[in-house]
């Protein structure tokens, strides 16, 4: 799940320069920049949410280990 998510984000990031490169900065052809702004912003918030989720998962794992070791020490 998380790997697929990372691959998607990486593809989008790799596509951004291609999108920018194809732009002509004349007349009203500014649309790619506008799209790039939305893409970057959403990816960043998405990435941050992903980072927090991973931290939460790490924390949960650590709590499980702690609980286990406490139970073991109480058992003996």
């Amino acid at each position: 799940m998380s790997k697929r998510l990372a691959a998607l984000v990486a593809t989008l990031i790799l596509l951004t320069p291609a999108m920018l490169g194809s732009s002509h900065t004349e007349g009203e052809d500014y649309l790619p920049f506008l799209f790039a702004v939305f893409a970057v912003t959403w990816m960043a918030f998405f990435g941050y949410a992903f980072f927090m989720t991973r931290k939460q998962a790490d924390l949960k794992r650590e709590i499980d280990i702690l609980r286990q070791s406490i139970e073991e020490s109480e058992g003996t």
Partner: peptide
């Protein structure tokens, strides 16, 4: 942490705005 995230986005979107407008 969130401030750095927003500042990063502010800088990137600022650059994307500056390029077409200022060249």
């Amino acid at each position: 942490e969130i401030g750095v995230l927003f500042t990063t986005l502010m800088l990137i979107t600022g650059m994307l705005w500056a390029k077409p407008v200022w060249g």
